[in-house]
């Protein structure tokens, strides 16, 4: 006796479309494509957010750095009174030496270092009202006039480079995702055309019985979309597992709860739902176009 269809393909098709080996290959192809596109999509969104974050957080922030040995009470007073008088400066804060130490120690891979062990600069963080280049340059020039040891940085130079790279990576990711979708469409249309040819006699028979082209199309759509749906669910699960594993390798200090939540925060819901939906729509449209075209070529 013939094996009954699974729950997802419970509707018995008029066409003998169930071919476990071919269905498994199709599933594997869609699963892998979905997984890769999800990885690309998530990294693209991640880079976009990172760049956006830098842009909003850093563009209105500037830093004054002064060598510790040159930082006298008088210089501090001069800087403070100067900054108080500047409309462009919203607020400022002299960072305590311990915080500076905390900030640099991970970069130097040293722990428990005291501020006396190593000469550290005095850092003053400024929050700026405007990012207008002229105003910022004027501020930098005036600070330099107070003391030649004042080093003013407003992050704009490296930030624009970083943003350029982040946008380039995003564009590249989108191009790769598009190329993968094109490969999927091509492979799928070949596979569907093959199946139409393979089932030509049955399609003829259905036509003779009075089946419309759309009836035959529905048979193909139902079966192939059921296979696609399974592949998409598995693709998303696989992606969540791999992104979780990657996160655990990259951030080994984080605990399990964070690991779990990171899998979802890394995976933007738009990405998690949008990409499978996009793949589903691409598959549906490809199957639709290919079947109708192939079936209409028959008498």
């Amino acid at each position: 006796m013939s094996k009954k269809p699974s729950l997802l393909t419970a509707r018995q098709s008029s066409l003998p479309l169930r071919n476990p080996q071919a269905d498994r290959s199709l599933m594997a192809m869609i699963l892998l494509m979905t997984f890769v596109i999800l990885m690309i999509g998530a990294s693209s969104v991640y880079f976009g957010r990172l760049a956006g974050g830098w842009e909003t957080k850093l563009s209105e922030i500037a830093t004054i750095e002064i060598q510790d040995s040159k930082f006298t009470t008088k210089l501090q007073k001069d800087i403070e009174s100067f900054l108080d008088s500047q409309g462009i400066v919203n607020s400022y804060e002299i960072i305590p030496p311990e915080e500076v130490m905390d900030a640099v120690s991970p970069w130097l891979d040293i722990k428990g270092l005291r501020d006396t062990d190593m000469p550290l600069p005095v850092i003053i963080n400024l929050s700026l009202e405007s990012t207008n280049k002229l105003d910022v340059d004027k501020l930098a020039f005036s600070l330099k006039a107070i003391s030649e040891y004042i080093n003013f940085q407003n992050h704009q130079n490296w930030l624009s480079d970083a943003l350029k790279w982040a946008n380039l990576i995003r564009l590249l990711s989108i191009a790769i995702a598009c190329a993968l979708l094109a490969v999927l469409v091509l492979a799928l249309s070949l596979l569907v055309r093959d199946r139409v040819v393979l089932n030509k006699d049955v399609i003829d028979l259905l036509h003779v019985m009075g089946a419309t082209d759309h009836y035959i199309l529905k048979e193909f759509l139902w079966h192939l979309l059921a296979v696609t749906l399974k592949a998409l669910v598995l693709g998303v699960v696989f992606y969540l597992l791999v992104s979780g594993l990657l996160y655990s390798f990259l951030m080994p200090d984080h605990d399990g709860t964070e690991l779990f939540s990171s899998m979802f925060t890394l995976s933007d819901p738009y990405i998690l739902l949008g990409i499978p939906l996009l793949v589903f729509i691409f598959v549906a449209v490809t199957v639709w176009r290919t079947v109708i075209k192939a079936v209409r070529a028959l008498p």
Partner: peptide
């Protein structure tokens, strides 16, 4: 159609 029963074939 060998994947369908007698009933399903006739009902098609």
């Amino acid at each position: 159609l060998n994947h369908l029963t007698v009933y399903e074939n006739v009902a098609l």
